[in-house]
Each structure stands twice: as C-alpha cells, then as structure tokens.
Design a binder for these strands. Structure first.
Lengths: 223, 223
DNA sequence: GGACACTACGGCACTCAGTACCCTCAAGTA
DNA sequence: TACTTGAGGGTACTGAGTGCCGTAGTGTCC
C-alpha cells in the first residue's frame, strides 16, 4: 500500500505538477482512504522522499561504527558515498524526483531540511573526532558543509545527465577536492612520479598569491 | 502596520509558542484585518524573518558591485559579514528569533531555505569568478558552503551567548579558517616592494598545494 | 463641485493539508 | 462466544493561504 501510494503520487505529480495534485487525488487513484495516506507519510512532501529516513539511519550507524584509526575526513566522505549510492540504486526514480524538486519550491524547501539532517549527522561525528582541537567545532561544521556541497555538486550533475554519467566517479572526484583541502596526504596514493621531481615557479613579487595558485592549479595536478 | 504585525506576532509567539499562535490571533492583537497580514507577509513564517529579503538584495548588490581585482574568497567573506551585521543591528530581536527557530521545526525549515538562498548567491558569484578554472563550479559550491557554515557557526555561538560576545570578532575568526584553506595571500594589502621584483619557488612535484602556499605565506608578504 | 481613478484595507467564502475521533472488519485468542 | 488487536475507512474539525469583491480615503482632472 505504501508503494501504491508512492506510485500514484508520482504519476499525478509528473502529469499535473506537485501543487496541482491534492492528497485526495492521490488516494483516489491508489484506491485507499485519505486517512491511510497520512498513516504512511506524515506530510504530502514525505511521499516524494520515501527512503531518506532509512538512509539517514544507515548513515548514522555507519559513522557510529567507525573507530579511532579512521581518518575523519575520509570517513565522512565515505558516508557521503553511502547517500549517493541510495540515489544511484534507482536512477530513473531519482531523476524524476530531481525534476520535481527543481520546479516546486515547497519540495526544494523540504529537501533542504533533509540535507540539513545529513549535514548535522556528519558534523556531529566530526565534532566528536575533533574534540580537543582548537576550533574543533568550527572545523567540523565547515568540513561537513564542504562534503555535503561537493556531494550535491556531483549528485546534481549526475541527475542533470539523466542518470547516464558515472555517479560514483563524479562524487569521488568532487570529494577528492575536499580531501585535498583538509585531509592532506589523502591524494598521495602512489603513482609513477618520482617523489623528488621538482617544480620551479617564477613570478613577480606582489602578485596576489591567489593568482599564483590559480596558475599552478591549471598547469599541474599537485604542486 | 507591518511593524505592528511583527510586534504582535513576536509577542504571541514568545508567550504561547509559534504553532499555538494563529494568524487570527496576530491580526486580532494588531487590530487589523486578516487579509492584510497576507498582504505584508506571504506566509506566517515570513513574519519571523522580516528583513532577510532586503538583506539578500543587499548581498546580491554587494557582490555585483565587485571588480576583477578582488580576491573572490575574500569578497564572499565580506558578503557574509554583511549578513552578520544585519543580525548584530538588533541583538535582542535576533536572540529572540534564534530561540524561536531553535524550538520549532517549521521555522527551522524556513530558515534553511533562507540560508540556502544566501549560499546560492555566494556560489553564483564564485562561479562567475572561477569560470574557466578546472572544477570551477565545484570549487565555487564548496567554498560558498564553507563560508556559510563558518558564518553560521560564529553567528550561532554569538546568539547562544545572548548577544553578549563580540559578533564581528567571532565571525572574523571563523572566516579566517575558510580563507586560510582557499584564499592564500589575503594579507597582501600594500608595501613598498617594486613591481618587477621576482620570486622563485622551488618545490617537489605532488606536494599538496596548501603546503606550498603555507610556505610562501610564512616566508614572504605577497608572492 | 463632481467624476474619475488609484490605493489600502476589510470581509467573506473557498480550497486544501493535517488532525482527532470514532467506526468497521478481520484475525487471532482465551 | 466474547474479547482484544490492528489495519484501514469516514466524518468533522482547525488553520493557512487565495480570490473576489466592497469600501473608504486620497488625490487629479475637467
């Protein structure tokens, strides 16, 4: 019955839009009573995100089950991959939902509150791991936000592709950017370059440093 | 009349809670018609955040009015300070609102959508500035999220203090953490060095960029 | 002064999400 | 048979938000 309601809801949402579809329409199509809808979904928005509650529980469990030896940033990146996998399990459903949420502000607002809960779960884990550091909480909040932003950047790009691209590769690439910023050494996994290969940078003094960095970044990977 | 509605709403919200206060209660206390409430505020949530629309416009204008020489990350940090200043202008109001939003999920969800709009404004600016960089959009999204997270970390800590702490100092400290991660050279404000003086940097390939930058920063002012 | 707009506000009626309460029916159990 | 339990249905209600219209004040032009 839960699945029947989800199917009916999506059919109508895609046909005539989210706001133009009432709960009465959905239950009429699904052939169930109106009261039953609210037994399965606390609100009309919830029917659009039926699996996030479980995913959030998985994510929390995953973080709770990590030990002291894990590199914290790498761990939250793996947690983000967990979320991506949920989307990737049902590409067509995820893409449909993406188009829906993109066009209806009410759904976007709901999605934000879901994402916020993921972010707080990551931040809570990082705060534990950074306890005692100076600015540990700040670091935790910023890194959690960065991980979520990177994940969402890759996820949205995958969704825009209609689920055709390689979702895992995209999110790996995006998360590497975050790890390079805060989990130094993470990118140094080997490769063929000899360690003592040398780069020489020549620039005018007083060039804004960010311009130098930009030049370095566009020309090489690493330094 | 707008101010009368805000005052009446906050009085009732603080007295009996957000959800227990109906729009009818508010308009009765303010002595205006119910229909007028919705003329000034599109929804009941909006009365809690009466100045964000203007602040968002200020922020957008601030970013639009910047030129190519500005360091992008420093610019969005300054934009974040703009938002903080709006909170700091009315400490007691901000603290009251903070306690309200903390305890009512509906308000928290609304606040998230407001914050999201700020973040998108910052990201849009950064995307323009990073256009052409490899992973420019990703970088823009991540940095925007980090700036917002740092700002919110400092803001919440100030709000929890009841508006007693130094808000500006707190947010400066938090934003410095972000700038140190991505906007090296922020301290480059002048000095007498001749323009054509040349700096040579020698480093190993595959050294994490941030290490190079740190080294540069500690050894010279500028590049 | 009178006709004309324009604006701000109030009142009324409506839709729809969400809730409280109670009903039915079926399945199991003493 | 009587009793409980749980899934679902029906009804009536509250409250947010909208559309429509009426009305009163405030100009402005003739």
């Amino acid at each position: 019955m839960r699945d029947a309601l989800i199917a009916a809801a999506f059919q109508l949402f895609l046909e005539r839009g989210y706001e133009a579809t009432t709960v009465d329409d959905i239950v009429a199509l699904a052939g169930v009573g109106r009261r039953s809808f609210f037994r399965y979904f606390p609100s009309k928005e919830d029917v659009v995100f039926p699996d996030h509650e479980r995913c959030l529980a998985d994510l929390t469990a995953f973080l709770a089950g990590s030990d002291e030896d894990d590199e914290p940033v790498a761990r939250v990146c793996d947690a983000a991959r967990l979320v991506l996998r949920m989307y990737a399990e049902n590409p067509s459903f995820s893409v449909q939902r993406y188009r829906l949420t993109k066009s209806f502000p009410a759904l976007r607002a709901y999605e934000l509150s879901v994402v916020w809960r993921y972010e707080r779960a990551l931040a809570a884990y990082l705060r534990r791991r950074f306890a005692g550091w100076s600015d540990g909480d700040l670091r935790a909040d910023v890194i959690a936000a960065a991980v979520v932003a990177a994940h969402n950047n890759a996820l949205r790009s995958w969704l825009r592709s209609g689920g055709e691209d390689d979702a895992e590769a995209g999110v790996d690439h995006a998360l590497r950017f975050v790890q390079d910023s805060w989990a130094p050494g993470g990118e140094d996994t080997g490769g063929g370059q000899p360690e003592d290969d040398v780069v020489v940078v020549i620039t005018k003094r007083r060039t804004p440093l960010w311009r130098v960095v930009r030049e370095l970044e566009t020309q090489s990977d690493g330094a």
